[in-house]
Each structure stands twice: as structure tokens, then as C-alpha cells.
């Protein structure tokens, strides 16, 4: 359940950013979560519901941009969609892969009031 720690970090970032702008309310939050980031979405949702209570994010609309995994084969330079870390390159079958996308875990933007 590291998802709870992740949600707590998101709340922390939100509160710091809101304080900078003297905001008393957060209307929207936009997150970027890669499919290879190690976040289980059901666990994340569960943690979110519990953790945002009595915080600035309690009533905020949450938008999650899910970023699909993308690997670059270090052997043959093929760029391919990646669902799992153990997938071989679909072109040459090698496992020397550099992850290009999918590890993202970011607070992209806030709409504050």
C-alpha cells in the first residue's frame, strides 16, 4: 500500500503550492501517472478517498492522464509500446530496453480558487 504514501505526497505538494498562491480551495488537480510507475490504480483510488478528507483536495475534481509505457530497444533501436517490464523487444527479442515513457508520477497542474 505505498499508494497511500503517494497520495500523502500529492496532498503535501498541493498544500505547498496553494499556500504560495494564498489559495483556500483547490477545484481541480491534474496528475500524470505512467502505466509502469508501480501504481495500482484501485489501491490508489482507495487511498485517495480516505486521505483527501479534510484537506484542500477533498472536493477537487481529479484528472489522471495515464501515460502508456514505451520502450526503446538498445540492440536494434526499435521503439515499441511496453505493458510489462519483462517484455522483450518485439523486433529482435532482446531485453536490453530503455524505458522512454510510463514511469511518470507527477502533479501536472492545479486549478485553485
Amino acid at each position: 500500500m505505498h499508494e497511500l504514501s503517494i497520495v500523502m505526497s500529492i496532498i503535501d505538494i498541493t498544500e505547498k503550492e496553494s499556500a504560495k498562491h494564498n489559495a483556500s480551495q483547490v477545484d481541480e488537480i491534474e496528475l500524470e501517472i505512467g502505466t509502469l510507475s508501480g501504481i495500482e490504480m484501485p489501491a490508489f483510488d482507495f487511498a485517495w478517498q480516505q486521505a483527501v478528507r479534510s484537506t484542500l483536495l477533498e472536493n477537487a475534481k481529479r484528472t489522471i492522464n495515464e501515460i502508456p509505457g514505451e520502450g526503446l530497444c538498445m540492440e536494434c533501436d526499435a521503439l515499441f509500446p511496453m505493458q510489462q517490464l519483462y517484455e522483450p523487444c518485439p523486433v529482435c527479442g532482446h531485453h536490453f530496453i530503455s524505458i522512454q515513457k510510463g514511469k511518470e508520477l507527477r502533479v501536472k497542474s492545479l486549478v485553485i480558487n
Partner: peptide, 16 residues
């Protein structure tokens, strides 16, 4: 006051 501001945070969640 109901002025909405969009803040481009662009911050890694695990930044801290």
C-alpha cells in the same frame, strides 16, 4: 473571491 488560477505545478510526486 472566485478568481480561478491554473498553476502549472509539473512536480514529481516523489520529489521530496
Amino acid at each position: 473571491s472566485h478568481s480561478k488560477t491554473i498553476v502549472e505545478v509539473e512536480k514529481d510526486v516523489l520529489y521530496e
